[in-house]
Computed example of a mutant assay.
Amino acid sequence: MTLPDGIVRRAFDGRERLATSGEPVYGEPTDGQWRVWDAGRSKLGAMLELGMDVPLSGGESVLYLGAASGTTVSHVADFAGPTYAVEFAPRPVRDLVSVAADRSNLFPLLKDARQPETYAHVVESNLDAIIQDVATRGQATVAARNATFLDEDGVLLAAIKARSEDVTADPEAVYDRVLDELEETYEILETRSLEPYHDDHLGVVARKQ
């Protein structure tokens, strides 16, 4: 797998790890301009670490859904172009605003990803990618509603959280149901369990239909 421009593998503490160039955010190890992208704290980082074929080359325009305090989206902003970061909880958005202070291409939005009409006036259209990491039921619905922002061949990179959909159901059954719903809007290109980095999570790479 070829990594997007702006993401490298470097030796930290005697082993090779993913890294991006930017100001540190969450106490991650650094080496000069490079900072470790901790796959154990990032679903997208786990997708990359596990060798999933993520169709990004660097410089893409991105809508990030479920940005929380900015752990993963800070790495995304290090290698991407304009990056719109949606988070509905006020407390983590305060941290996200601090992260954005060091990244002129990162735009925090205190919004609910289930209601894209509330930020449609801010987010540009024809984006290259949606990155989704939301802890809510209806994750396929969220991805479908936000597809309106994507270019005709834009991609979705999603971490499906089985326990957020149904805490009592078998995760594999949950994944099947979510993927069936996603296929109404997206062509599924690749899926993979994110273990051992994240239990009961499925990484999904898809392209807009």
Rank of each mutant, 00 (worst) to 15 (best):
90 P>M: 09
113 A>L: 01
104 S>N: 08
132 Q>A: 12
140 A>D: 14
156 L>T: 09
86 V>T: 08
109 L>H: 00
134 V>M: 00
180 D>E: 14
104 S>C: 06
159 A>P: 03
147 A>G: 13
157 L>K: 07
158 A>M: 12
79 F>Q: 08
121 H>N: 06
98 S>K: 00
144 A>Q: 12
148 T>G: 15
96 L>H: 03
112 D>F: 00
136 T>R: 11
81 G>L: 15
190 E>Y: 12
139 Q>D: 02
123 V>R: 04
75 H>A: 07
145 R>C: 12
127 L>A: 05
105 N>D: 05
191 T>H: 08
125 S>V: 12
131 I>T: 07
125 S>Q: 13
85 A>T: 03
79 F>R: 09
135 A>Y: 03
106 L>W: 02
133 D>N: 05
180 D>K: 12
184 E>R: 05
183 E>L: 14
78 D>Q: 00
123 V>Q: 08
178 V>H: 06
135 A>W: 02
77 A>Y: 13
161 K>N: 02
188 I>K: 11
122 V>G: 04
137 R>H: 11
85 A>D: 07
153 D>E: 06
83 T>S: 08
133 D>S: 03
119 Y>C: 10
165 E>M: 05
102 D>E: 06
191 T>W: 14
98 S>P: 07
143 A>Q: 10
191 T>S: 04
192 R>L: 08
152 E>C: 05
95 D>W: 00
190 E>T: 06
78 D>H: 01
176 D>G: 12
96 L>Q: 03
154 G>D: 01
76 V>K: 05
77 A>N: 12
79 F>V: 11
160 I>C: 04
115 Q>K: 15
129 A>V: 15
93 V>E: 03
89 A>L: 06
180 D>W: 09
188 I>H: 11
182 L>K: 08
119 Y>M: 10
89 A>N: 07
86 V>A: 12
149 F>Q: 14
93 V>R: 03
143 A>R: 10
132 Q>L: 15
104 S>Y: 05
106 L>K: 01
179 L>Y: 13
82 P>V: 08
99 V>Q: 04
193 S>R: 02
120 A>F: 06
129 A>P: 09
183 E>Q: 10
87 E>A: 01
168 T>H: 11
187 E>D: 06
107 F>S: 02
153 D>S: 02
138 G>W: 14
160 I>T: 04
76 V>H: 04
80 A>C: 06
99 V>K: 03
161 K>A: 04
72 T>P: 11
139 Q>Y: 02
77 A>T: 11
94 R>F: 02
163 R>A: 15
128 D>G: 13
97 V>R: 05
192 R>G: 06
118 T>F: 10
85 A>W: 03
113 A>T: 05
186 Y>G: 09
169 A>F: 00
123 V>N: 07
119 Y>N: 11
140 A>L: 15
136 T>H: 13
167 V>K: 14
88 F>P: 01
74 S>D: 02
121 H>M: 04
144 A>S: 15
183 E>T: 09
172 E>N: 06
93 V>N: 00
119 Y>G: 13
74 S>L: 01
188 I>C: 10
85 A>Q: 04
126 N>W: 14
122 V>S: 08
174 V>N: 10
100 A>F: 07
129 A>H: 10
192 R>I: 01
184 E>F: 12
155 V>C: 06
100 A>R: 03
137 R>N: 10
190 E>R: 13
